[in-house]
Every structure is written in C-alpha cells, then in structure tokens.
Design a protein around this nucleic acid. Structure first.
Length: 284
DNA sequence: ATTGGGACCTGCTCGC
DNA sequence: TGCGAGCAGGTCCCAA
C-alpha cells in the first residue's frame, strides 16, 4: 500500500504523539505464522526485551521505511508492506483484526501494527553493531532530497537497460516510488513506461525529474492516496486526498484528461502499469 | 551484474 | 447464492 507520501503522512501523524514516550511493553500477536515481521530477528523474546523500557527520541522516514530512534542508540525500523497500517488506538477500542504487533507506550498510548497480508517487516538495528547490509540502508537517493538532481537521475537511468518504469520502482535506484506515483510521474512527463531507460534524452530526464518531485510534493500535501478499497489511512485513521488528482492510475478505460484518448494498462515487471497511449509515445 | 518472473499472504470483486 | 479466478499500493529470491 504505502509509498513515500503515505509513509511521510503516517510519520507526521505519529511524530508528536510518540516523541518522548517510553515503550512499556511489546506484544506480538499469536497469529503471525508466515509473518515477515520479525524474520530478520532471531527471537521474539530478545526483540521485545530490547525494546522494552526504551524511550522514543525521534521518528523519521527513509523511503518507505519508518525509523524509530530509541534511547540507547538502537533503531526500530518498520516497513508496512502492501497492507500495513499503524494506528494509534485508545485502550477501550478492541484491537482490529490482523493486528500483528502492539507497542504499549507511556501515558496510555497504544500503537498497533495491523497487516492483513503479512508483508510488513520489522528490524531492530543497532547503530553500533551496524549491520549496514539490511535493506533500509541500501537504498538510492530520496527523490525529494537535495542529492536527487536531474544530473543524478540521468546517471541512474543511463546506466540501466531495463524499462524506465522498472528502474523507477527499483528502491536501489530511487527510493520511495511505488506503482501509483511511478505511473503518475511518467504520465506527467509524457514518457512511455516501457521505454528503455538508457534512451531518455536530457530534456525527457529533466521533465521526469520535475514530474517525480512535483507529484510527490503534491501527494504529501494532500496526505497520500487512499485508493478505491480505502486501505490506506494515517495513524489517526484519516484517509488521504491525492486520489482526486490521479491521471492514469486506476483510470483504465477512462478518458485521458489531456487528450481524451482512452487510458490503457500493460504489465511491466509484473506490475499493472497505467498510461495514455497518445500522450506517452513508445518511440523516442 | 542485471533483469524478469514467481513467491510470499489475505481479502475483495467479478464473471460464470 | 456460490465458487473459483484474478487482482491489490511491496520486496525477496532465483534462474537465465
């Protein structure tokens, strides 16, 4: 589910409520067969023990990961996968179905990790022992960061031969884009998603760079995209607003707002890809 | 080394 | 109404 704008929104909705709180207890719910939640971690007991008693100093986002900076130098890293939600729920509210983990914090705050499809992950990372090989530390540049320049994007695209869409989805190339914002950015830049990434010229790369940043900023401003099935909500249960601004994603069969051609889909790297066949020509 | 395809899960929608 | 097929915002693993 969540891409960069959704994770950023969740972070913002959590930060003020979590900063300075202490993790009193960590509860791993029994139905977690096949859950990747802790698979990077040897034992649940050690995981919960290392978290208990720590206070949360800061909450940050890196790509689609949420990083809880804990007192003592450890970082709890969460990834929400496809269907994950983080919800702040008062104690009187029963735990929702598919709750996998609960952080019981000071002052009666309860943070629930709900994840029907079990694709979410948790890491507990120590800055000192520094196993930097784990995924959250092997990512490409933040697309909204300073280092993501048109020149940087050009380097990334020019050394790859895959389709531009699959390069943009590769978190080691650019970190934080997912299926929705890839399709939207390529549409705005009028680039066909199946173009070989090394064939984009300077002008196209500049347009794509602009489109990626503008779309992500707009989506963050509208607090993310809550698509048709309404799965994505922030930590206080609020839906996002960017779905109103979608131009191709989930608009198969509808008219292109720009040229009236019918929006079509294709498969690229196994992902449904939405595009306008007229605005996004496959030829250079 | 890079790339594409399948696997991992559950729930929902659609067509028969 | 009921059932199976297909699909879903992500990432990992493997074979080519």
């Amino acid at each position: 589910m969540p891409e960069l704008p959704e994770v950023e929104t969740i972070k913002r909705s959590l930060k003020r409520r979590l900063k300075g709180k202490t993790i009193r207890k960590v509860e791993i719910l029994p139905d977690s067969q096949g859950v990747r939640l802790l698979r990077r971690f040897p034992s649940r007991a050690a995981f919960t023990r290392r978290l208990a008693g720590r206070s949360i100093k800061d909450l940050r986002r890196r790509a689609k990961y949420l990083l809880f900076y804990l007192e003592g130098g450890e970082i709890l890293i969460l990834h929400l996968g496809m269907s994950g939600q983080l919800l702040l729920l008062p104690l009187r509210i029963p735990l929702p179905p598919h709750t996998r983990m609960v952080l019981h914090l000071s002052e009666g705050v309860r943070l629930c990790f709900v994840d029907p499809r079990k694709f979410g992950e948790a890491y507990l990372f120590s800055e000192k022992t520094g196993e930097k090989r784990v995924n959250p530390f092997l990512l490409g540049p933040e697309p909204l960061g300073k280092e993501f320049t048109p020149k940087k994007l050009a380097e990334i695209l020019q050394r790859r031969k895959a389709t531009v869409k699959s390069v943009l989805l590769d978190q080691k190339a650019v970190a934080g884009l997912g299926n929705i914002y890839c399709d939207e950015a390529l549409f705005r830049a009028r680039i066909h998603p199946a173009r070989n990434s090394s064939t984009l010229d300077k002008k196209e790369i500049a347009l794509l760079h602009r489109a990626i940043r503008d779309i992500l900023r707009e989506a963050v401003g509208l607090r993310g995209t809550t698509a048709a099935d309404r799965q994505y909500v922030d930590a206080r249960g609020r839906a996002g607003g960017f779905q109103e601004s979608l131009r191709v994603y989930q608009r198969k069969g509808e008219d292109c707002h720009r040229c009236r051609e019918t929006i079509r889909t294709t498969k690229i790297s196994g992902r449904t890809t939405h595009f306008c066949p007229a605005c996004q020509s496959p030829d250079k």
